[in-house]
Structures are given as structure tokens and as C-alpha cells.
């Protein structure tokens, strides 16, 4: 895994098992450390949660990693930062990844703060040519510093951005395809985020997925979201009746998202599919049940050549 990123334009390999995985959350760690191994093909953790010098949390993950394929999913690279990436953070991540040797690493098309601040949220980017240049440089920097190929995830968005007159918006699928072509990165397709954005920003899910560069996808995410009414805040001109979808990863995957996943898999063949559940974490059996459903969809599609 210490090889450099592949040259731009080469076909990214899928590094994780083409099966269902789950996000590993603290309440479930004892079950994974116990004698009976939970039946799931791979697990994913948030990289930054394990950026600690030592202690029981990191030791537990190292023990679990010996038995399971591992994906390290970052939330803090801030690939959209105009000011560039934090060299110390990259060095810390490199140390963690060299220790854990994950099968796959990833982060988001987002920014998380500027000027030496981390805001603990994945913030929206104006999708312009300027931003594309910034993100492409940052991805190349990250892949070099981390010594690994990165998957970049499509974001979930709540707020429409209005570009100044004369500045052209690049559609998100095209923007991501450009990043793949320029940096050799792969993509992480979060189907739930597509549903959330389509509702919040008012675009068509089918058209978005038709344009998405699926050949670059090395992993898929599904998760639950919640509906929130912000009617008192939002005026009568509010799109979508003032109801906002929040991707809180705090409930079961919706039927809409499962259907879209099946549609994507029919086009791609089996890919690694992760069920994320971060808030109000349920008993492990519930999460494994969701993963089993994802696996049943995976079992229903034939491998593609």
C-alpha cells in the first residue's frame, strides 16, 4: 500500500472486498474483540478518531484490523481549502496509516475550516474552475504525502451557493470526473448524499447518477437521513417547502436509497458497500441486518467484466 498514486487516467482498482461493510463505532468494539467474530466483510473507521498517540482505543482497532479488511475514512483533510492542506495533519495521518495499513483511504469534496481552524463539519464549495484547480492540487498533495490513492466522496449539502455573474458552475459529476482525470484519485459514491442534495438543492437524482463517473467508484456509502422542517426560519419562497434533509446517519437506510443502490450496482457490478450509522448507534444486530440487506442486493448483481 506504500506505492505512489497511479498516473492520471489509469483505471482505479477496487481495494476493499466487493461486499457489504459497516462503520465501526465505539459501542460495538467489545463485540469485535470477543471470541465470536461479527459476520461482515470489512469495517470502516473515521481516521481522525484514531489520531491519538496510544492507549486502548488504538490498540482495539489494531486487534480488529488483524481480522477484518479496513477502510480509513477521513473527515478532516479539507480538500477544498484555498489555503492548502495542513502539513502536520498529513504527517499525523501518514503515521496512522503506516501503522494500520488500511486497504482503502478516503475523504470528502468539502472544506472544514481555514486559517488554522477545524470546524468539525463538511462545508460546501462553489464548484468553479478555480475550486477545481485548488482541489486537484490538494488531492495530489494528499496522495503524495499519504503514499496512497484517495477516494473522494460526493458531499451532502444544505445550502445553495450563488456564483457571481460571469462565473460558471461545473456540475458536480463533471467536477468529480475532472478530479479523477487530473489526479488519478478514485471516487466514493454516497448514495444517501445524492438523495439529500437533490432534495435540498433541487436537482434530479436520476440525471445526477446518469452523469456520475461510475468507472472511478471504489466504494459506495448508504446511510439514513432525517427530515427537518425549518418553516419558521425560511420565507414563503423556500424551496421544497422548507423541509431540509439532514444526513445524520442516525436511522435505517431509506427505501429510496436502497432502490438507487440497486440501480447503481446493476450498472457497476458488485462494489464495496458501507452502511454508515453514526448517531443514536443501534445494537450491532440492527446494523448487521442493514449490512445483510446491502449484501443481498450485491448478491443479486453479476460481476462485470
Amino acid at each position: 500500500m506504500d506505492t505512489a498514486a497511479p498516473a492520471p487516467g489509469t483505471t482505479p482498482a477496487v481495494a476493499l472486498p466487493r461486499r457489504a461493510g459497516i462503520g465501526l463505532r465505539h459501542p460495538h468494539v467489545p463485540a469485535f474483540l470477543g471470541g465470536e467474530r461479527p459476520d461482515v466483510a470489512w469495517v470502516e473507521v473515521h481516521s481522525e478518531t484514531y489520531l491519538v498517540a496510544g492507549g486502548p482505543r488504538l490498540a482495539a482497532l489494531e486487534a480488529i484490523r488483524r481480522d477484518y479488511a479496513l477502510s480509513c475514512h477521513g473527515v478532516g483533510l479539507s480538500l477544498g481549502s484555498a489555503a492548502g492542506l495542513d502539513a502536520k495533519h498529513l504527517a499525523n495521518l501518514r503515521q496512522l496509516y503506516d501503522r494500520l495499513r488500511p486497504d482503502q483511504i478516503s475523504d470528502h469534496l468539502a472544506w472544514t475550516g481555514t486559517g488554522g481552524a477545524y470546524l468539525n463539519d463538511l462545508l460546501p464549495l462553489p464548484l468553479t474552475a478555480e475550486t477545481r484547480d485548488v482541489v486537484a492540487v490538494n488531492i495530489a498533495h494528499a496522495q503524495d504525502a499519504l503514499g496512497r490513492r484517495l477516494l473522494v466522496e460526493n458531499p451532502s449539502l444544505y445550502m445553495p451557493l450563488t456564483l457571481p455573474p460571469g462565473v460558471e458552475a461545473i456540475p458536480e459529476p463533471q467536477f468529480l470526473a475532472d478530479l479523477v482525470a487530473r489526479t488519478g484519485c478514485g471516487l466514493l459514491l454516497d448514495v444517501n448524499n445524492v438523495v439529500v442534495c437533490a432534495h435540498n438543492l433541487g436537482f434530479d437524482v436520476a440525471a445526477y447518477l446518469a452523469d456520475f463517473p461510475l468507472e472511478a467508484v471504489g466504494e459506495i456509502h448508504v446511510a439514513g437521513h432525517r427530515r427537518e422542517a425549518f418553516a419558521p426560519w425560511v420565507g414563503p419562497d423556500a424551496g421544497a417547502g422548507g423541509v431540509v434533509l439532514i444526513d445524520d446517519h442516525g436511522s435505517r437506510v431509506s427505501d429510496t436509497v436502497w432502490d438507487l443502490l440497486a440501480g447503481v450496482l446493476a450498472r457497476t457490478g458488485p462494489l464495496p458497500v458501507l452502511v454508515e450509522w453514526d448517531m443514536d448507534v443501534p445494537p450491532l444486530e440492527v446494523l448487521l441486518g442493514e449490512a445483510a440487506h446491502a449484501q443481498s442486493l450485491l448478491d443479486g448483481v453479476a460481476p462485470h467484466a
Binding site: 470546524l119 468539525n120 463539519d121 445550502m159 450563488t162 425560511v234 423556500a238 431540509v244
Partner: peptide
Amino acid sequence: LAPGAVAGARLKIYRANVQQSL
């Protein structure tokens, strides 16, 4: 880049996320 009532309201979602999660 976020003019108008809708974007203003949605900006508050991000502000709440940031401050409350920290």
C-alpha cells in the same frame, strides 16, 4: 455566495452543526 432567505436559513443549519458539535 449565500444571498436570500433560503440560503440564510440554511447557513444557520451549518452554524448550529459547527457550534453544537464542538
